[in-house]
Nucleic acid binder design. Structure first.
Length: 881
RNA sequence: GCGGGCGUGGCGGAACGGUAGACGCGAAGGUCUCAAACACCUUUGUCCAAAAGACGUGUGGGUUCGAGUCCCACCGCCCGCACCA
């Protein structure tokens, strides 16, 4: 057969198989009590308008799991939806006009059109967007249930305020302390906002992490640290010369053992005392205002230079009333943590040390390394709490003890003297969900002059966003929409105003996984559906969600359970979690005549490897304008670097660096299977993978080789036997075993390596037609999760029954996996010097005898007896001289 | 600043504490071709002409018969830090 008529043509075959799957309803999820269920979920996308390679990688991984589980007989749920609320839609409306809904739904349409050609085994009948009123209406219903259950409340909280645009800014909209649009200095301002009482679950959310065995250890650690349980002492200092009402300052410390090393007290600029003082003291007012300009992120506060303002107030030390400590307002004290006030022990905290040095405060050491003398410190001495140290200013417990022991002893001592209480605190703060924006789920309450805050009646849900809004003025359009904003009080019928804050988009994504089990239901969830489908058996997404999204979802599952929307088994909604790495690409950069960087798209350069192995990127535009060929360029000016771009090693794909590879282009050129195979092949899934055009081309070639191999095998005789049959069958079972195990353990790069190995064996095998056919059909089955279209093609070519997508997963025969001999390396003093082949069931003694008789071993022994011989059966022999 | 992660050939990466470099890319040589492309075959960590050998997993120490893997210290890069999603 010539290459003319028979070729691997994904552009033709891929749509064909997608239609076949759709016609057969392969991916429609059904509750089937007779079968075990499997729920695979990839973190749903934000509809930005285009899919990127990260999506391809994420969804391909989920698809491998979904298709494998389906083949293994599970009833699979593999849904897809859209995390559709958020600021970009509003930004687009501001910049380009139009309406956020129009922008969002259009993006969804485009992105879905780009995703469909990937051939993912998604049940599209369950699709929804979080901006659908049907979805957010149910979310509002749950909000009301949470409100009734006491899981939501209002309190004042700090926001970034842009005084020119008169609007609240997100952290990412604050650049160097200035508003991104107005350029005005951003202020911290307090607003009354809605909060979820997530902190009520701190202890439980922390304790339950230990049960999340199939989560990555790093995510569990990050969550633990985020919740941040600490044990400490809360007590108050009595003040001297403080204003009325501030006779005491309550502080919290995790190191009460350092109380005798205290040298100052510091309160947050947002502390009631600081706020009181600023009303009467312009210096303090100016200092506090300065602090508030730093912003609201913890990062900014931590990185800012540590500064304080001496209030002139002092406090008495609890164990020595003659000892007075100055009270500062300090920019690094968070009002949200502890009591918003601390005592500083500069000897044993670097921040306090820097502060004390700056303000010339004493630095008395409380403890020193065992056996050392008390001496002046050049920096804070901060040993691990588990280390034994010698206390020179301790007041409780032994003189030499660990920090942990000393803390407990100090708490006991203080409590017995009536100085404070031992308390457990958490770093985790309540979740502020209010957003002063339009494009989010409206908070379904009204503010009535007579009744106060009144929940909307459930029969009036959803509280829909008004469509007639404009974004030509700063601020939230809901605030200035009179017919939407003004309403009747659900309780008294009097004049009332709707809440104009909308919900954080994290709320939308905190329960979508539950909604997928019954996406069209008229209640948030349906008992039978959540009972059958929950939990998510495998959740897959980016590590950037390791803390907030996952923690919020864990909280939501508990809150939903408490309000009757989820069964108890679903309070940890994700049984297994996998966090995948990014897709990166190298950057092509040159410089313009003013020495500014200019970035070039991958398709605008030709990559060439020079003889010395150096890679260069030649600018296509340069070749065209000079009328040159690549060869001319290589001969002439390449060495000079003219018309070439520097290759900067891989970086996260971003539009500004122009290193984005568009999946749509790749699919058009090579087909979806090439894109799918490549994103799985090179790197372990949890690590970043670098997209390279050479790799994509090589993948495509390999897939074409498999196609051609299948075609060759299809033409082989129907009957007969050949000497290589047994070897090929062994290789086949090894491949089944390896691919099955590596898919199970999320090592898809190794699955692909095993498929390469098996394909290489298969193409060189000296086996008969029937065995070859059997092997290549198995190859199709093993490849199907990764490259389902090609697998169908091969399956059909070999006369496979029905669709390979519907075929059951092959099982390796253990008897075919063992061999009768084994090759062992022999080390001499830990260095490999020889190898021997012995029977797989040889005894240690036999192996030792054979090893010691080996030529190389005899040469090294030179007649002497070995000191020791270590035989690890099946692995290695080590002879120690 | 705090928290978390990652460092292995020219490149992506393999390796229950047991033969470092599986598999793929790239490169070199060959077959085919008028020639090229494609395809196929062989080689490919570094040093040495080759053999033998030596050296090799970011750096420096340590534990072990044996360390990429475990421990300590350091260096570099990446991610998160509560209103981006």
């Amino acid at each position: 057969m010539t290459g003319e008529t028979a070729r691997y043509q994904p552009q033709i075959t891929e749509p064909k198989w997608q239609e076949a799957w759709e016609a057969a309803g392969c991916f429609t999820a059904r509750r089937d009590p007779a079968r075990p269920k499997y729920y695979v979920l990839e973190m749903f996308p934000y509809p930005s308008g285009r899919i990127h390679m990260g999506h391809v990688r994420n969804y391909t991984m989920g698809d491998v799991v979904a298709r494998t589980r389906k083949a293994q007989g599970y009833s699979v749920l593999h849904p897809m939806g859209w995390d559709a609320f958020g600021m970009p839609a509003e930004n687009a409306a501001m910049q380009e006009g139009g309406h956020p809904a129009e922008w969002t739904y259009n993006n969804i349409k485009v992105m879905k059109g780009q995703m469909k050609p990937l051939g993912l085994s998604i049940d599209w009948s369950r699709e929804f967007a979080t901006c659908d009123p049907e979805y957010y209406g149910q979310q509002q219903a749950m909000f009301l249930d949470f409100l009734e259950a006491g899981l939501v409340y209002r309190k004042a909280a700090v926001v970034n305020w842009d005084p020119v645009d008169m609007t609240v800014l997100a952290n990412e909209q604050v650049i160097d302390g200035k508003g991104w649009r107005s350029g005005a200095e951003v202020e911290r301002r307090e607003l009354t906002q809605w909060f979820f009482r997530i902190s009520e679950f701190s202890e439980e959310l922390l304790a339950a992490i230990d049960g999340l065995e199939n989560w990555p250890e790093k995510v569990r650690l990050m969550q633990k640290n985020w919740i941040g349980r600490s044990r400490g002492l809360q007590f108050s200092f009595s003040t001297v010369d403080a204003p009325e009402g501030f006779e005491r300052i309550e502080v919290y410390t995790t190191r009460p053992d350092t109380l005798m090393g205290a040298s100052f007290v510091a309160v947050s600029p947002d502390h009631p005392l600081a706020k009181h003082l600023e009303r009467h003291d312009t210096g303090i007012a100016a200092f506090n205002a300065e602090c508030r300009r730093i912003g609201t992120t913890e990062e900014a506060l931590e990185k800012a230079e540590k500064r304080g303002f001496d209030t002139g107030i002092t406090v008495r030390h609890p164990f020595d009333t003659a000892w007075e400590l100055p009270v500062y307002i300090a920019n690094f004290i968070l009002m949200d943590y502890g009591t918003g006030a601390i005592f500083g022990c500069p000897a044993h905290d670097q921040r306090d040390f820097d502060f004390a040095t700056k303000y010339d405060l004493p630095i008395p050491a409380v403890f020193v390394p065992e056996g050392e003398e008390d001496a002046a410190l050049a920096e804070a001495y901060v040993p691990p709490k588990s280390e034994r140290v010698q206390y020179v200013r301790g007041f409780a417990g032994e003189e030499v003890q660990t920090g942990e022991e000393a803390v407990e002893a100090a708490i006991d001592f203080c409590q017995s003297r009536g100085v404070g209480q031992g308390v457990t605190k958490f770093r985790l703060r309540d979740w502020g969900l209010s957003r002063q924006r339009y494009w989010g789920c409206p908070i379904p309450v009204v503010h009535c002059d007579a009744c106060g805050v009144v929940p909307e009646k459930k029969e009036n849900l959803p509280v829909e966003l008004p469509k007639d809004v404009s974004f030509d003025q700063p601020g939230n359009p809901l605030d200035r929409h009179p017919t939407w904003r003004d309403c009747a009080c659900p309780r008294c019928g009097g004049k009332a105003r709707r809440e104009t804050d909308t919900m954080d988009t994290f709320v939308d994504s905190s329960w979508y996984f539950a909604r997928f089990t019954a996406p069209r239901a008229e209640t948030p969830t349906v008992a039978e559906d959540v009972a059958y489908w929950m939990n998510v058996d495998q959740y897959i997404g980016g590590v950037e969600h390791a803390i907030l999204h996952l923690l919020y979802s864990r909280f939501f599952a508990r809150a939903m359970h408490r309000t009757g929307h989820l069964p108890a088994k679903a309070i940890e909604p994700f049984d297994a979690l996998f966090t995948q790495g990014m897709v990166t690409h190298e950057i092509y950069m040159s410089w313009d005549d003013r020495e500014r960087p200019v970035y070039h798209l991958p398709e605008d350069v030709i990559l060439h490897t020079m003889v010395d192995g150096k890679r260069v990127a030649v600018l296509k535009a340069q070749l065209v304008s000079n009328g040159e060929t690549l060869e001319d360029r290589i001969d002439n000016t390449l060495a000079l670097g003219i018309g070439t771009a520097e290759i900067v090693p891989s970086a996260k794909m971003s539009k500004s660096k122009k290193n984005v590879v568009d999946p749509v282009d790749i699919i058009a050129r090579f087909g979806a299977d090439t894109a799918r195979w490549f994103v799985l092949s090179d790197s372990p899934p949890e690590r970043d993978v670098e997209w390279t055009s050479a790799g994509a081309e090589a993948t495509h070639k390999h897939l074409a080789r498999v196609w051609a191999l299948s075609e060759r095998i299809a033409a082989m005789p129907e009957a007969g036997a050949a000497p290589g049959d047994a070897d090929l069958l062994r290789a086949m079972h090894r491949a089944i075993d390896e691919v099955s195990r590596t898919i199970e353990s999320f090592a898809f790069n190794k699955s692909i390596a095993a498929l390469y190995t098996f394909t290489n064996v298969l193409s060189k095998a000296d086996a008969s037609g029937p065995v070859m056919r059997r092997a290549v059909r198995t190859l199709a089955q093993l490849m199907a999760p990764m490259v389902p279209h090609l697998a169908e093609e091969v399956w059909a070519m070999q006369g496979g029954e029905g669709l390979v997508t519907e075929a059951s997963w092959p099982v390796a025969d253990p008897a075919m996996l063992v061999s009768d001999t084994v090759t062992l390396p022999i080390q001499i003093n830990g260095k490999r010097r020889a190898e021997i082949t012995v029977a797989a069931d040889a005894t240690k003694e036999d192996v030792e005898k054979i090893a010691l008789a080996d030529d190389a071993v005899l040469r090294f022994l030179a007649g002497a007896a070995p000191k020791k011989v270590i035989v690890v059966p099946g692995r290695i022999v080590n002879v120690v001289l």
